[in-house]
């Protein structure tokens, strides 16, 4: 069989993308497509795993048996989602262990929202409602991403996450229907998590270095700013319904655009947190490294046993 030139292969590849035919693991793909996917999916996987920590912080202190079970199940789901995503990166030829090492060495980032501390129980509500809400906006869009294993992982994740946002909003609603102390707790969480949630969509389109190519490859299907706007439009009425104030004096409905206008995001803060200067960056990575190091002998033991008893 005649070998196709790189150029021809690239052309065929883009034609497939344009026809919305999914790319599968062993298909030919440009090196940069593979690298972009590895970066994006592993960042996404790390975000799920590191994201377990701020919420996990409240499992032992959850205020009722029901809330404890719900929170455990939710954080457990995140472990599952990280696992699905690591599996997707493995189809691109990188092992989970190497991917995780890149997280621990700081080579690959995770969503900077998880560098903020969870200080009160209301933060668990705010994370479920806002942070998961923002994540879901992204993830729903990614169900149609061009790489098959990533798209399939996202479909599964979206299905499972549908309860996450609801349980967060339910916590916030309960607090807002509660005592003065509970309402204050809820508003305080809102004040701290609103802006970082908006930052979750990443830099504005003008600043985002990866957006254009990723859109052409249909890895991304919407721009950061489009998704951010959808999130604001969806969240404002939800906040109003239960009496929470959005901490943004410039927020108002724009009839002509059919969207909410909102104030400028403090990108300086965003870059500081991404750059490692957030309130919990160090603790998050330390916790992950500790789990890996303390688990080393366990993983070794299981392998040693399996080798001894290979039938």
């Amino acid at each position: 069989m005649e070998t196709l030139t790189q150029e021809k292969l690239a052309e065929k590849f883009q034609a497939k993308i344009d026809a919305d035919i999914k790319i599968e693991p062993n298909d030919w793909m440009p090196d940069t497509y593979r690298k972009t996917l590895i970066r994006q999916i592993s960042q996404h996987a790390h975000s799920e795993i590191v994201g377990m920590l701020p919420e996990g912080n409240w499992i032992t202190r959850a205020p009722s048996l029901r809330r404890k079970a719900v929170l455990l199940a939710k954080v457990q789901d995140e472990a599952g989602h990280g696992l699905y995503l690591y599996s997707a990166t493995e189809t691109l030829g990188v092992s989970r262990e190497d991917t995780i090492d890149d997280l621990h060495s700081g080579k690959v980032k995770y969503s900077s929202i998880f560098n903020y501390p969870t200080l009160t129980w209301a933060d668990i509500g705010a994370i479920g409602w806002l942070v998961d809400g923002a994540a879901i906006m992204n993830q729903v869009a990614l169900c149609r991403t061009s790489y098959g294993p990533y798209a399939r992982a996202m479909v599964k994740i979206c299905k499972e996450e549908s309860f996450h946002q609801r349980q967060g909003y339910e916590i916030m609603t309960t607090l807002m229907n509660g005592t003065e102390a509970q309402r204050e707790m809820a508003q305080d969480a809102m004040n701290r998590f609103w802006w970082p949630s908006l930052m979750m969509f990443g830099p504005s389109d003008a600043e985002s270095k990866h957006t254009e190519q990723s859109m052409r490859w249909r890895i991304k299907r919407h721009t950061n700013d489009e998704l951010r706007q959808s999130f604001v439009d969806a969240s404002v009425p939800q906040a109003e319904l239960i009496g929470l104030k959005i901490p943004d004096p410039n927020l108002k409905w724009n009839e002509a655009r059919g969207h909410y206008d909102f104030g400028a995001i403090d990108w300086e803060e965003f870059w500081q947190v991404v750059g490692g200067n957030g309130p919990c960056n160090k603790e998050r990575i330390e916790a992950r490294v500790k789990a890996k190091e303390e688990g080393e002998w366990v993983r070794e033991a299981a392998m040693a046993y399996a080798k001894k008893h290979k039938s």
Partner: peptide, 26 residues
Amino acid sequence: LAELCGHGPILEEDIALTNISLDLIG
């Protein structure tokens, strides 16, 4: 066991221990 959620020796075992914790709380 709930204290271990997010700190297991490998993801699969983290999930397994959390399942046990959930059963016990149930």
